[in-house]
């Protein structure tokens, strides 16, 4: 049971959140995208062991989406940041 620091509400129980999978997935320009591009956007994910950038929504709280940098082995949350922000450096 994770304790997730919502950027708006502070630390809250995992049960208040819903995971949204990997973050920073770029939606390709639809006109230019090949089938392969579109398939990668829809289905291909990195699934790393270790540091993972993902997005969560505080579904039973402020209902805001935000980014989370989480270690998939230790579940340590290294950073949370807003949707408009870039991946933090040096994690």
């Amino acid at each position: 049971m994770l304790l997730i620091p919502c950027p708006w509400c502070g630390p809250r129980e995992e049960g208040e959140f819903a995971p949204g999978g990997e973050g920073h997935i770029r939606r390709p320009e639809p006109q230019a995208a090949s089938d392969q591009d579109w398939a990668e956007y829809l289905y291909y994910r990195t699934n790393p062991k270790g540091l993972h950038f993902e997005r969560w929504v505080h579904a039973a709280g402020c209902r805001r989406w935000f980014n989370v940098a989480r270690d998939t082995v230790t579940h340590e949350i290294r950073a949370v940041y807003k949707m408009s922000e870039n991946r933090p450096e040096g994690l």
Binding site: A18, V57, R64, W65, M83
Partner: peptide, 13 residues
Amino acid sequence: FGWLEEWLQCEWL
């Protein structure tokens, strides 16, 4: 509702 919110917050800011 969640779907619309996700697009508005994550893609169409």
